[in-house]
Design a protein around this nucleic acid. Structure first.
Lengths: 216, 216
DNA sequence: GTTTACATACATACACGGATGTATGTATTA
DNA sequence: TAATACATACATCCGTGTATGTATGTAAAC
């Protein structure tokens, strides 16, 4: 082969990322060699080593591609025009809608949950996940605090703990979702699955009212 | 070295299992070679291949050691002498007590959540986890159905979905627990973390009443 | 109660493949 | 013509599985 134009090169870079995403999801990160990826992409390891320094670099690049989508998901959490309880409710639904609609999000979440080790050599991943988790919980906590100020929270609910619980519930549901991808139970009954926790946190189904200050 | 007595042999077998558990948890399963384990145990690969056929066999044997503890946990779920809601409540607390008290349970759960891949070559693990998850959810559902017959459930709650939600919440909390092992927040506030979901599922805090048929 | 014969519980040694990283080749393209 | 975008070739190491060695425990034979 010979040299390609810059556009074509960028194209092969994306092809490598797409292919790696597929193979990582099918075989697991550690069990996948760079030769596997190159072969699946119809290229050679030379192409990979040209665009990336090693497997970890490739993996990180591949994961970074979904950051904007995840960020835009969180952005709507802080929209003050909507009742904070409703914001959380919609945010939960938006998360699973994203998971349902985007095969890429699904695969990368799947790789993180089931397809890679996060200890030892991959410990940086773990640290990243911890900080990401804390940020996420902080955002949830912020919205819950806002709800508390508007007297939407039940009296015995601590916003910080509710944030941890909600985040854990999301994580657990995503995990169950990924375990059986073809089972649509969670997707079709998401409201019924989330309702109990919302019921236990908020007063009088206020999360179903889009108005900014429904209660009080 | 020479031959040891049967007792000593059994002892080295357990030493290998203990050591593998440690190293797998520290470095991850795929990143750990049999030579690593043997060296950490002060033995050689010969000892491992004598007692186990390969790494997967060793890993399975290591995981099987916690089955009785997990089973005894579930056994108390079906004790009809106690209010089903209370049974679920106590079961949730017992799970985290076990996680807190037993380093072995903690490590093996940690390995499953963060230290091993469950796709590709390790897919049997995934299938096992799926069937285990379904069994667990079925048990929870059974207790919830029992609660429904006693009119302890809120009217709009579906036992099957509540079982999935409860199980996911447990899984997510365990994951958060394992991510930051030295953070005792979850352990110290478990009741406050579980309460919302119970509040959303059951009527009038009936899970705090140990009597068999508190409601109706 | 020895002795003998075999099984046991490993350690050591070897052969093999496979993965990595790098060095080099090569045809474009800018 | 020089940098680019790869493919190819090479050297190295590491992990596995197995084969073999070996000293001891163990049980039966005598």
């Amino acid at each position: 082969m010979a040299r390609k134009t810059r556009e074509e090169a960028e194209q092969t870079r994306h092809l490598l990322l797409d292919t790696a995403e597929q193979v990582f999801w099918e075989k697991g990160v550690a069990a996948t060699s760079l030769a596997d990826i190159a072969a699946a992409a119809g290229l050679t390891r030379g192409a990979i080593y040209w665009h990336f320094s090693n497997k970890l670099d490739l993996f990180n690049a591949l994961c970074d591609r979904i950051i904007p989508e995840l960020d835009s998901l969180d952005a709507r959490l802080l929209d003050p025009a909507i009742n904070p309880a409703t914001r959380l409710w919609q945010h939960g639904h938006a998360m699973f809608a994203l998971l349902h609609d985007s095969p890429r999000i699904r695969r990368i979440c799947g790789i993180h949950h089931l397809g890679c080790e996060q200890v030892g050599e991959m410990a940086p991943l773990l640290l990243e996940q911890i900080s990401w988790t804390q940020e996420k919980q902080a955002k949830l906590q912020q919205v819950l605090l806002c709800a508390q100020e508007q007297h939407l929270l039940r009296d015995d609910v601590d916003p910080k703990l509710a944030a941890i619980g909600l985040h854990s519930l999301y994580g657990g549901l995503i995990h169950s979702w990924l375990l059986a991808q073809d089972d649509r139970t969670i997707h079709h009954n998401l409201s019924a699955l989330l309702s109990p926790y919302f019921e236990g946190i908020f007063k009088e189904r206020c999360w179903l009212q889009p108005l900014p200050c429904a209660a009080e």
